[in-house]
Design a binder for these strands. Structure first.
Lengths: 222, 222
DNA sequence: TAGATTGTTAATCGATTAACAATC
DNA sequence: TAGATTGTTAATCGATTAACAATC
């Protein structure tokens, strides 16, 4: 395998910015832009040119002095770094509103994943079709995993069910979680890759920020 | 209004941790725990006791030397800091799968918001009931806002529609956004409160982390 | 060649951790 | 009082920004 970066450890902050670079480059590409300087890109993205150059140089010298970066090439490189050039098999647990929305709404293939199965514990949902997949009863999870070897699980389940299910899934060889439940997986499994989507936390953070803003405006009026 | 913190500026990192404290304290409260030390809480949450004390002391001295923190009281205080003691009116734009899931799934009231209306540009959705609300046609947005004065908008729309809609909403007095579209609002409006939920970015970050982990495991085998 | 812009090193800034005096 | 644990200051660590030599 090609070594993707110079030294072993890339910081979390850098990794979290990569998808955003990828999105902006996709836009530029679609708009027919061929080359871009770190300065130009930083203006569009609202960050510093220095940071862009630092970030990219964690992975290699993709630019050219005096020219800048080739949009198409840089887009491609970031895709490779993220690992979007192949897909990993994913299963979704929990076919409630949120689970169905994720299954229907999300473009998995362009983000490195392939959805291969949907599970729920509710008998009444079994067999219902979601994105072309029949919802399977959770009792069939072990057998399905042994046969199909999914690598990632998407958890759209209540917190109360998450702990036991995570244990089971890790035993079944799951290597990473996209976690929409409010259970903190990484307390028990500090080393497993998890992306938490805590929608409730996000909403509360917004609440704080909106309140601060409104309070500041009202204070300004006086 | 009561000054909620000692000096004006609380860092984003601190604010982002508050909802998580709030969740853990809710659990402890539910489990009947009366007091907790920063050490004990740090063990449960997987961070340092120092950080917890630093974070909390941005807002005031909620603890007691030799004793620790009163769970109920600290929970209540963090709720006040976040502003969960009153609600702000929110509208949701985009009644597709994701929008409907958010509307149905999310507990707004306990997070400082009250959903008062749902809009979509699709004629065919108009009148359909979601969480007890009829989906309204987007043409009625101006009138509805002038009458009901919502303060926050939840954007569950494609990126292509986000820019124009954000302009319109800001003119209508919207003070903050919960943004599920892939449009970067804060590039044009750097000062407006926005919480971005970039599900696609989150999934790509997971892709990177899972790939790294699997690559490391395979390297270890040799 | 001259101008532009990178890659990279050094300086700054901020956030986290450690230490400990204050105090319940 | 003695023990425990906070609130807070100081030390460390990491991330961002600035500067500039290398080079296309």
């Amino acid at each position: 395998m090609i070594p993707l970066h110079k030294n072993g450890a890339i910081s979390v902050s850098v990794i979290k910015r990569l998808p955003r670079y990828y999105r902006f480059l996709a836009d530029l590409k679609a708009a027919g832009v061929v080359r871009i300087s770190s300065r130009e890109l930083s203006d569009r993205m609202g960050l510093t040119a220095s940071q862009i150059r630092q970030d990219l140089n964690c992975f290699g010298g993709f630019g050219q002095q005096g020219y800048g970066y080739n949009v198409e090439q840089l887009f491609h490189e970031i895709g490779l770094i993220l690992g979007l050039d192949h897909t990993r098999k994913a299963i979704l647990i929990g076919a409630g509103n949120l689970g169905r929305a994720i299954a229907t709404h999300m473009s998995f293939e362009s983000r490195g994943f392939q959805l291969i199965g949907i599970f729920d514990k509710k008998e009444s949902l079994a067999g219902q079709m979601v994105r072309g997949f029949p919802v399977r009863h959770i009792d069939g999870l072990d057998e399905f995993c042994r046969e199909n070897l999914p690598e990632v699980a998407i958890l759209c389940i209540p917190r109360s069910e998450a702990a036991a299910l995570a244990d089971q899934l890790i035993k079944l060889g799951i290597k990473g979680f996209w976690n929409f439940s409010h259970y903190d997986l990484s307390v028990k499994y500090p080393d497993i890759p998890v992306e938490n989507v805590h929608l409730g936390d996000s909403l509360m953070t917004l609440c704080y920020n909106v309140n601060q803003r409104i309070a500041a405006e009202e204070a300004g009026k006086k």
